[in-house]
Amino acid sequence: MQQLPLDIEIKADSTFDNFIVGGEDNAQLIAVLQGLARGEHDFIYLYGEQGTGRTHLLQAFTQHYSEQLPQALVAYIPLDNMQLVPEMVEGLSSFDAVCIDGIERCLGDKAWETALFNLYNQLKEHDKTLVIAGIEAPQQLDVTLADLKSRLSAMLIHAIQPLSDDDKRVLMQTKAEERGLELTDDVATYLLSRQQRDLPHLLGMLETLDQASLQAKRRLTIPFVKQVLEL
């Protein structure tokens, strides 16, 4: 995997194996991404609300691609990185696969939209792979450059389906176990019933409980959770 000279972190635990799949639509999306990581070529646009795992999937694809095709070049570009400038995109046409994360962050900027439009055309011309993630479907994006919007709309589009409460419970318990915590069904159910249900909030809350548990040397019980989270 060739890295760009930027402070871009790809988390080692962002893999396909530890992604909580949920429904069949998500399973199909992962199958498509795994196929691309084995050398198939396509242009994929995936979208979903906050916490559905867009970044996880793009980073998992990047790592899997590099493992399966070690001689190929793959780039992961998170557009929330303030070091990035449109000119950096120009050199990505030499890569075999490019992942663009958070496309909504650059929309309305003529230079960025033009750079992405040109990259799209260059990768398509040379039968490369492009994976883009956004918070909305292409048709709902506020794209100024009409030709870019038409290109995005022509990609193979997949909506990431939100997890059910049961799936969120499994994810929280898995993340707790990775931290050396035991999160019982009763405590997990209590947290899901009392807190915001989006995953960033739930996982942030789990981090708070982890730190409190270490400091107090106590296991996670409902009374302890109430005390720490002031419920």
Score class of each variant (00 low, 15 high):
residue 59 Q to G: 08
residue 37 A to F: 03
residue 57 L to G: 09
residue 71 Q to E: 07
residue 57 L to A: 13
residue 65 Y to S: 06
residue 62 T to N: 02
residue 28 Q to V: 11
residue 46 L to H: 07
residue 72 A to Y: 00
residue 56 H to N: 09
residue 38 R to N: 15
residue 58 L to F: 04
residue 29 L to Y: 01
residue 24 E to Y: 01
residue 35 G to C: 05
residue 33 L to S: 04
residue 23 G to R: 08
residue 55 T to Q: 13
residue 68 Q to H: 15
residue 40 E to M: 10
residue 52 T to W: 02
residue 49 E to L: 12
residue 38 R to I: 05
residue 75 A to R: 11
residue 36 L to N: 02
residue 39 G to F: 07
residue 63 Q to W: 01
residue 44 I to K: 06
residue 26 N to H: 11
residue 57 L to K: 01
residue 37 A to P: 10
residue 31 A to D: 15
residue 66 S to W: 05
residue 59 Q to A: 09
residue 53 G to C: 08
residue 67 E to N: 14
residue 60 A to E: 11
residue 63 Q to T: 02
residue 76 Y to K: 02
residue 31 A to Q: 04
residue 69 L to M: 09
residue 30 I to G: 08
residue 70 P to G: 05
residue 45 Y to D: 01
residue 61 F to S: 07
residue 45 Y to I: 03
residue 24 E to A: 11
residue 48 G to R: 00
residue 48 G to A: 06
residue 65 Y to A: 10
residue 59 Q to R: 03
residue 44 I to N: 04
residue 45 Y to R: 00
residue 49 E to T: 15
residue 53 G to P: 10
residue 46 L to F: 12
residue 75 A to T: 01
residue 37 A to S: 15
residue 25 D to G: 09
residue 42 D to N: 15
residue 29 L to F: 01
residue 67 E to H: 14
residue 61 F to A: 05
residue 76 Y to F: 15
residue 71 Q to W: 04
residue 43 F to V: 08
residue 31 A to K: 11
residue 63 Q to L: 08
residue 24 E to K: 14
residue 34 Q to W: 01
residue 67 E to I: 12
residue 72 A to N: 10
residue 75 A to P: 03
residue 61 F to V: 06
residue 37 A to D: 06
residue 43 F to A: 13
residue 76 Y to V: 03
residue 40 E to W: 00
residue 49 E to N: 15
residue 31 A to L: 10
residue 67 E to Y: 13
residue 29 L to G: 07
residue 53 G to L: 06
residue 26 N to P: 13
residue 31 A to G: 12
residue 68 Q to W: 03
residue 26 N to A: 11
residue 51 G to T: 05
residue 43 F to P: 07
residue 76 Y to W: 03
residue 48 G to T: 14
residue 33 L to K: 02
residue 59 Q to D: 06
residue 66 S to I: 00
residue 24 E to M: 06
residue 49 E to G: 15
